[in-house]
Amino acid sequence: MEKNKHIDELDAFAKKYVKEIKIEKAPADFTSSIINTIAEEKRNAVFKTSTLISKKGWFLIAASLISVVFIPFTNSKENTLSFLKIDFSFLEKFQNVNMFEGITISNTVYYSVFFFGFMLLFQLVFLKKYFEKRTN
Rank of each mutant, 00 (worst) to 15 (best):
60 L>F: 11
61 I>G: 00
61 I>M: 03
61 I>D: 03
62 A>V: 13
62 A>T: 06
62 A>H: 03
63 A>L: 06
64 S>H: 08
64 S>G: 09
65 L>E: 02
68 V>Y: 10
68 V>L: 10
68 V>R: 13
70 F>Y: 07
72 P>C: 06
72 P>W: 06
73 F>D: 08
73 F>P: 07
75 N>S: 04
75 N>E: 10
76 S>R: 00
78 E>T: 15
80 T>I: 13
80 T>D: 08
81 L>Y: 11
83 F>M: 05
83 F>S: 08
83 F>Q: 00
84 L>Q: 09
84 L>A: 06
84 L>K: 07
85 K>D: 05
85 K>R: 05
85 K>V: 02
85 K>S: 12
85 K>Q: 08
86 I>E: 04
86 I>D: 00
86 I>V: 00
86 I>N: 02
87 D>K: 00
88 F>D: 01
89 S>N: 01
89 S>M: 03
90 F>W: 11
90 F>T: 03
91 L>A: 02
91 L>R: 03
92 E>V: 11
92 E>T: 04
93 K>V: 14
93 K>S: 07
93 K>G: 04
93 K>L: 11
93 K>P: 00
94 F>D: 00
94 F>C: 05
94 F>M: 01
95 Q>A: 12
95 Q>H: 10
96 N>Y: 13
96 N>G: 09
97 V>D: 01
97 V>A: 02
97 V>L: 01
97 V>Y: 04
98 N>Y: 13
98 N>F: 05
99 M>L: 14
100 F>K: 14
101 E>F: 01
